[in-house]
Structure formats: structure tokens, C-alpha cells
Simulated scan of single mutants.
Amino acid sequence: MQQAENSEGNQALTPRQRAVLDAALRLLVEEGDHLTMNAVARRASCSKETLYKWFGDRDGLLTATVRWQASKVRVVPVDPGNVDLVSLTESLEGYARDWLKVIASDTSIALNRVAVSHAGSGKDGLGAMVLENGRFALATRLKPVLDAGKRAGYLAFEDAETAFRTFFGLVGRDVQIRLLLGDWPGLTEAAIAEDAARATRQFLTLYGVRKEP
């Protein structure tokens, strides 16, 4: 199986930088909107100068944090010249499982709550960062898989964005809004695997092409 792709730029992060971003995520969980460069430096046991060197200002740190969290949703690529229904299904199910695991984490819930509170408030644009480096970036990474399935004759759609939005909706359903509002929809490992498989089956029912033997 081919190695899963991370979102753009995260391959270059050092283990130390990843630890700093994890510290920033933990602070978002604990303190919400009160994330500062000083607080991250203290929690990560590094200097503010190092943070500014690596990430620029606070917006740069937030953007890197969002990208790091989004990179945990992997996309297993398919071989464009040798796509079969099994590899296509495995790629879609794996993406769905990872996305559900990520959005159900306390770090993603905290990050999304802060982003929603910032939307339209004239603050630092965290909402736009989350959209650009989260949902939009995830679409960019999955669409080549959808396009490969279409070229191989297993999928039929006119627009990859519409197909992606359908799949995204089948996977997410009402889960994310329930999480943001403090409800826990029972996302155990087994439930996540079942939801991912069901969403993939539903998507293939809507967009799949039955090939003759």
C-alpha cells in the first residue's frame, strides 16, 4: 500500500516543531481564545524568538497549527493507471475514518469553537484559516482520488467539488455540529469504522458505475 499523503508543508516539520504545535493545540483546549505566543513558549519550553523564527506572528502559528491538525487526515493515493474498486474503496474509507477521528478529538473541537467565535468578529481571521487549511485543503487532496476513480470507470460525476461535498456530507452528517454544541455522538473506534464504511457504500451507490464482468 502506498504511503498516505500529509497536507502540504507538514513533511518539512521537525519533531520539535510538531511538539510545539501540539502544545499550542493543548492550550487551545484549555484556554480557548486566550492563546498567546508567550503562553505557547512557556508550555513548549522554548523562546518566543524561536516561535517567531519558525512561524512568524500569532497568525502564522495558528495557521501552522491548523495545518498540523488537518494533516492527521490522511489520503491514501491510488495508482491512476491501475485503479480498482478495492483500492478506491479503501482510500475513501481510510479518509473517512481519519476525518471522523480528527474532528472528534478535543483539540479539533476546541479549535473549531474558537474559529466559529471569530467568524465575522473582525478578529484574527482564524475562521478563514480553518476553512483554507482544513476543509478546502482536504478537498484538494481527495479530489485526485475521485478523478482517478472516474477515469477508471468506477465513478460518474460532472463536477469533482460536488462529488466531494456529497461524500463529505455522508461522512460528517450532523456529527460536527453536535460535537461543537457539547453532545457526544458515540464515536468509538468501532462506530467510526462502521460510519466510514457506510458513508463509502452510500457514496458508491450514488456515484458508482457498475462494470460488466
Rank of each mutant, 00 (worst) to 15 (best):
Q69M: 10
F55C: 08
A96E: 01
P77Q: 12
R43N: 08
G56Y: 12
Y52N: 14
R42S: 14
S47V: 15
V78C: 01
S45N: 15
A96C: 04
T63E: 09
V66D: 09
G56H: 11
G60S: 07
V86R: 10
W68G: 01
L85G: 07
T63F: 03
R97H: 11
L62R: 06
R67F: 00
N82H: 15
S91Y: 03
S71G: 13
L51V: 08
P77C: 12
F55L: 10
W54C: 09
R97F: 06
S45L: 12
G94H: 04
S87Y: 02
D79L: 11
K72G: 13
V76S: 15
A44R: 03
A44Y: 03
K72V: 09
E49H: 09
V66P: 05
V75L: 04
A39H: 06
L61N: 07
K48F: 04
K53W: 14
R67S: 07
V40F: 12
D57L: 11
V73H: 06
D98S: 05
L61C: 08
T50A: 08
K53I: 06
R42K: 12
T65A: 15
P80K: 03
S47K: 12
P80Y: 03
D57F: 10
T89R: 04
A41I: 07
A44C: 05
V66K: 05
T89W: 00
P80T: 02
S87M: 04
A96H: 01
D84C: 04
T89K: 01
S45V: 08
E90Y: 04
L51P: 09
D57K: 11
W54S: 12
G81E: 12
T89L: 00
R97E: 14
V78E: 02
W54Q: 11
W68M: 06
P77H: 10
D98E: 00
R67Q: 05
Y52L: 13
R43A: 13
G60R: 09
S87F: 01
T63M: 08
F55D: 05
T50V: 08
L51C: 10
T50D: 05
T50I: 08
D84H: 05
A44L: 05
G56C: 08
N82T: 08
V76L: 15
A44W: 02
G81I: 14
G56S: 09
L88Q: 03
D57W: 13
L85N: 08
D59R: 12
L51A: 12
V66C: 10
W54K: 07
R42H: 12
K72D: 11
F55N: 06
L61G: 06
T50P: 00
Y95C: 07
N82K: 14
G81V: 15
A96F: 01
G81R: 10
K48V: 11
L92C: 03
R74G: 15
V66G: 07
T89F: 00
D57R: 11
T63R: 03
L51Q: 13
A44M: 05
L92A: 03
